[in-house]
Amino acid sequence: TRVETATETAWISLVTALHLVLGLSAVLGLLLLRWQFPAHYRRLRHALW
């Protein structure tokens, strides 16, 4: 049971790290898009909202 718990903890930390990385890359990508294509971003936002 001790090994299982350790594996579970490792998986949880791995998944958390993955989610953090994905979230950060998504935010960075959005910022980059907004910085590179302001007109396109505004049009996209206008279409979405």
Score class of each variant (00 low, 15 high):
L32P: 05
H40M: 14
T16A: 11
L44S: 03
H46G: 10
S25Q: 03
L31K: 04
L14K: 05
G23L: 15
L28A: 12
A17R: 03
A6N: 11
T1Y: 11
L22I: 10
V3H: 00
A6V: 03
L33P: 02
L22W: 00
H46T: 08
V3S: 01
R43H: 07
A26F: 10
V27L: 15
R43F: 04
E8R: 01
T1S: 10
L24F: 13
L22T: 14
V15G: 07
L20P: 04
V15P: 01
P38L: 08
A39S: 13
G29S: 10
L22V: 13
L31C: 15
L44D: 04
R2V: 08
A39Q: 15
L32I: 12
Y41M: 14
V3R: 01
S13N: 08
A26C: 13
T5W: 00
L18G: 03
I12A: 08
R34E: 01
R34L: 10
I12M: 10
P38F: 04
R34C: 13
V27G: 09
E8G: 09
L33R: 03
L32G: 04
S25P: 05
L18F: 08
V15A: 06
R43T: 11
A39K: 12
L44V: 11
R2L: 13
L14G: 06
R34H: 02
A47T: 08
S25W: 02
L30G: 10
R34N: 04
A6I: 03
L32E: 00
V27I: 15
T5E: 00
V3A: 02
L14C: 13
T1G: 03
L48Y: 06
L30V: 14
P38G: 08
T5Y: 02
L20N: 02
G23F: 15
Y41I: 11
A10C: 00
S13Y: 15
L33W: 07
L20V: 14
L18Q: 03
L30R: 01
Q36S: 09
A17E: 02
S25V: 14
W11A: 02
T16S: 08
F37K: 02
A39N: 12
I12E: 03
Q36H: 06
Y41C: 14
W49G: 02
R2D: 13
W11K: 08
W49C: 00
A17V: 07
R45Y: 05
V3G: 01
T7V: 08
R45P: 01
L31D: 02
L14R: 06
A6C: 08
R34S: 05
A26W: 08
S25A: 14
H40W: 07
R2Y: 12
S13A: 15
V15R: 04
T9D: 03
P38S: 10
A17F: 06
L48P: 00
I12K: 12
T9K: 10
V27S: 08
A47P: 03
L32N: 00
A17Y: 04
L20R: 02
T7D: 06
S25T: 10
L33V: 09
T5I: 04
S13R: 10
T5N: 00
Q36L: 07
I12S: 09
T5R: 01
T1V: 12
L30E: 02
F37I: 06
L14S: 06
F37C: 14
L48T: 01
T1C: 07
L14F: 11
Q36P: 06
A39C: 06
H19F: 15
R43C: 08
I12F: 08
R42H: 12
L14H: 03
L28I: 13
A39E: 14
A47E: 02
R45F: 06
T5A: 00
L48K: 01
L30N: 02
A47C: 10
R34D: 00
A39H: 14
R45I: 08
L22Y: 01
R34M: 09
A6G: 13
R2F: 13
A10P: 09
E8T: 13
W49R: 02
T16R: 03
G29R: 01
R45D: 03
E4Y: 06
A26I: 12
V21W: 03
R2W: 14
W35S: 12
H19Q: 08
H46K: 08
H19S: 15
V15N: 06
L31I: 14
H46D: 06
T9V: 11
A26R: 00
V21L: 13
R43P: 05
A47R: 14
L33Y: 12
L18T: 06
V3P: 01
R45M: 04
P38W: 04
L20F: 09
Y41R: 03
A26T: 09
L22H: 00
H40Q: 14
L31F: 12
L32W: 12
W11E: 04
T16P: 03
V27D: 01
R34P: 00
T1F: 11
L18V: 12
Y41N: 05
G29L: 14
L44K: 04
Y41S: 07
G29A: 12
Y41A: 14
F37D: 05
A26K: 08
L48C: 14
T9L: 13
V21R: 02
H19N: 14
S25H: 08
R42M: 07
F37H: 05
L44C: 06
W11V: 10
L31W: 12
F37L: 09
L28Q: 00
